[in-house]
Design a protein around this nucleic acid. Structure first.
Length: 492
RNA sequence: GGGGGCGUAGCUCAGUCGGUAGAGCAUCGGCCUUUUAAGCCGCUGGUCGCAGGUUCGAGUCCUGCCGCCCUCACCA
């Protein structure tokens, strides 16, 4: 038996001992629990004196034992719930009958207690228990009681341990919920409705990415996990749903990095009779509400930088940035190709627009630190976007960048079915076949033929928004269970 | 796929020039009714990621492999 198994066996023995005492080691319903946060708040107005036990000031709390100080017949426990930590005082005098069971408590166990509030002589707010309920006797030892779990691999593989032993991690995911709820509330406040469209799609489209493929047995057909909900949401515009959004889990069968996870969450929205300028306001608006719900601070640290989200964000034309940072004119194809040579980009077999965008990505993107809308993209790489009325080589598209990272992407949507069909039929040299946005979807074209109102559309990467607003350097720190290569069963 | 780094007790980490694998915490046993990472005494705990190689001798040097992190490439 390994030492690890021994430690586990010792705890299993304690579980059996509890059963012999007639104590259920796994508890049950435990009503009317007050959070430790609420208790701390309540205690402020009670003015409990140091060393006082306020008889009759009742409290009922449940949580996990994260620290334990046993002094023979007096035990102090630090109990952690979602809102924070609170000290329990367990005295043999008050808990005579339960004492043998309470001596079996270990770090990591989940318990509940009723008692009077007080303060110890070191002025620590304490629940002096007169009844303790064991809610879950644990058989795995928790990690280091003050370092928590630091091994990054174990943190991701055993996120549940990471969450209860590292309060900062839990706080980040609570903030994630706050941010996404703010995005929803903002859009609902703009008269949007939330919808759900297929994640299993017979044709994938709406983005340029490799899909995951799967198979439906009963229909005997191959399906793709969506890379984007775009083509379905636009069908809803045709159907007369004028403002729709979806919080969409998208799947892209591509590399993993600090900014990419194979499954990620976007909010994608479409607004009839709007355009991409309105979408810029939507990005600003949802971000501002999220910040307001967090701490209201528009100037936020990210790594060693400070990002200022004050509205309005900077707006720059794609062509202007290309001229500024690459020193070439967007219409100067030869100049762009010379620059591509300089940058070591192999562009011989690429379409002009693809080369242009390669140069843009290499020279401009990492310069866009403060929130910036880059607008008016080369039309050829935007098959789903309406053309500029004065220049058919320009598409009414913007991308939002923060800290050199693409946060969002928006169009004034193309609603001309004839042009849309042409765009989907033509593929660009230099684009990989399975990674182009130009995948023909006959039913989508048919929908457009029935008439889609002019509209603005927008997608915002919510994982990346959460990264930025919570100062998280890796997308894995804002995704609860990021993809990891599975380990053999030998791993604990 | 290229480059760099990491992998030692349940957890957090040391381990010098190649010379008997260590500490703290946790666990286990003992003392303890006001602790705050409680304290004190005693014990237990190891496939040094895996497999080879060099060597009288490898946690340490070499090769291959596995996993993770960073980075470049890839990637709306």
């Amino acid at each position: 038996m390994t030492y690890e198994e021994e430690l586990r066996q010792e705890r299993i023995t304690k579980v059996e001992k509890l059963r012999e005492m007639g104590v259920d080691p796994h508890g049950g319903r435990f009503d009317d629990v007050e959070s430790t946060g609420s208790i701390r708040e309540r205690a402020k107005s009670l003015n409990i004196d140091t060393g006082e036990i306020r008889e009759g000031e009742r409290a009922r709390v449940a949580g996990r034992i994260v620290l334990q100080r046993v002094m023979g017949n007096l035990i102090f426990l630090t109990i952690r719930d979602q809102s924070g930590d609170l000290q329990f005082g367990l005295s043999k005098k008050k808990l005579k009958e339960q004492w043998p069971a309470l001596k079996l408590l270990d770090l990591g166990d989940i318990i509940g207690a009723d008692g009077d509030l007080g303060k110890t002589k070191t002025d620590e707010l304490t629940l002096w228990a007169d009844n303790v309920t064991i809610l879950s006797k644990t058989i795995q030892p928790p990690p280091s009681k003050w370092h928590g779990l630091t091994d990054v691999e174990l943190r991701y593989r055993h996120r549940y341990v990471d969450l209860f032993s590292n309060p900062d991690v839990r706080e980040t995911f609570i903030q994630r919920s706050t941010i996404i709820q703010a995005v929803r509330d903002y859009l609902i406040g703009c008269d949007y409705i939330e919808v759900e469209t297929p994640a299993l799609q017979p044709i994938y489209g709406g983005a340029a990415a490799k899909p995951f493929t799967t198979h439906h047995n009963a229909l005997d057909i191959n399906l793709f996990l969506r890379i984007s909900p775009e083509l379905y949401l636009k069908r809803l515009l045709v159907g007369g749903m004028e403002r729709v959004f979806e919080v969409s889990r998208n799947f892209r069968n591509e590399g993993i990095s600090t900014r990419h996870n194979p499954e990620f969450t976007m909010v994608e929205l479409y607004e009839a009779y709007a355009d991409y300028n309105v979408m810029m306001e939507r990005v600003e608006g949802m971000t501002a509400l999220a910040i307001e719900r967090l701490d209201g601070n528009l100037k936020r640290p990210f790594g060693d930088r400070e990002i200022d989200y004050t509205i309005p964000w900077a707006r720059h034309k794609y062509a202007d940035l290309l001229r500024e940072h690459a020193g070439v004119d967007m219409a100067d194809v030869d100049g762009i190709r010379r620059k591509a040579d300089e940058l070591g980009i192999k562009h011989e077999k690429m379409d002009d627009a693809v080369v242009t965008n390669e140069v843009f990505e290499a020279t401009v993107e990492d310069k866009l630190i403060q929130p910036t809308f880059v607008y008016d993209y080369p039309a050829a790489i935007c098959p789903l976007t309406r053309r500029h009325p004065e220049n058919p080589d320009i598409a009414l598209r913007f991308e939002a960048f923060v800290n050199g990272m693409e946060l969002g992407n928006a169009y004034t949507e193309l609603n001309d079915p004839i042009v849309q069909e042409e765009n989907l039929r033509s593929s660009l040299a230099g684009e990989k076949k399975d990674e182009t946005m130009a995948v023909m979807d006959e039913d989508f074209i048919l929908a457009l033929e029935y008439g889609m109102p002019p509209a603005g559309g927008l997608g915002v990467g919510l994982d990346r928004l959460v990264m930025l607003l919570t100062n998280s350097q890796s997308i894995r720190d804002v995704i609860l269970f990021p993809l990891q290569r599975p380990r053999q069963a030998t791993e604990g």
